[in-house]
């Protein structure tokens, strides 16, 4: 009798134990494939993560309040960086509005959201004065920073980040302020150490950008 009773108990235990192990394994494997192991980079939909975060060259620009903005100002916060110009009616507002959406969709990660800013770097310092940039960036959100400055300082930063741009000659001689600027449409991610961490290229969906940003931040921190 005793023998008979023990057997089912042992079998039941084995069954429960293997079920628990299978569940745990499934959970960890699932997490592994979803977020990657602590050492393995996360799987990303919209971003390209740099194998190693790259230091930026020393640069000095001016923010929308006329204050100096350099590498030190990048410390301690995540920054989305976008290069453009304020006389751009399509790509720049589209991208900047998208970045406000990205920011809103990180709301569940309170600390991360509180430590995230968006920087719009003008590649058109001829027209984009700090006063002009102030009206422009503050329209989008209060956590937006607008940067402008000397061309060689802008170039220092843009070249290090692989950003290309070209300013066209004015369309008419009597309208010297009416010209177009071609510029890279990439969104760059700078980590709280002030290093180039990742690039988003061509992604339209703010949710995908936000999801990838959260994955990158968790992986790096």
């Amino acid at each position: 009798m005793n023998e008979k009773r023990k057997r089912p108990k042992g079998q039941l235990f084995a069954l429960v134990a293997s079920a628990v192990i299978a569940l745990l394994l499934g959970y960890f494997l699932g997490n592994y494939f979803e977020y990657g192991s602590p050492d393995k980079p996360p799987k990303l939909d919209s971003a390209t993560l740099l194998p190693q975060a790259a230091d930026l060259p020393d640069f000095e620009l001016m923010d929308q309040n006329g204050q100096v903005f350099n590498n030190q100002n990048l410390q301690g916060k995540w920054h989305f960086l976008f290069f453009g110009y304020t006389h751009c009616p399509d790509v720049c507002p589209t991208t900047l509005l998208r970045l406000t959406e990205v920011y809103n969709r990180t709301a569940a990660e309170h600390d991360l959201q509180a430590n995230t800013d968006v920087i719009f770097v003008s590649v058109d310092p001829g027209r984009d004065t700090p006063q002009h940039l102030k009206k422009y960036v503050e329209y989008f959100a209060k956590y937006f920073i607008g940067l402008t400055g000397k061309k060689e300082q802008i170039d220092k930063l843009s070249k290090a980040l692989g950003i290309a741009y070209s300013i066209h000659p004015p369309e008419a001689e009597d309208e010297p302020d009416n010209y177009l600027v071609d510029h890279s449409a990439a969104i760059l991610l700078i980590n709280p150490q002030g290093q180039f961490q990742a690039v988003f290229l061509g992604e339209q969906d703010p949710q995908k950008i936000a999801d990838d940003f959260i994955k990158i931040a968790k992986f790096v921190e």
Binding site: C88, V91, D182, H183, S184, A185, A186
Partner: peptide
């Protein structure tokens, strides 16, 4: 969009 550059024409 051409080679990652936004151009307006």
């Amino acid at each position: 969009m051409q080679d990652g550059m936004a151009k307006m024409r």
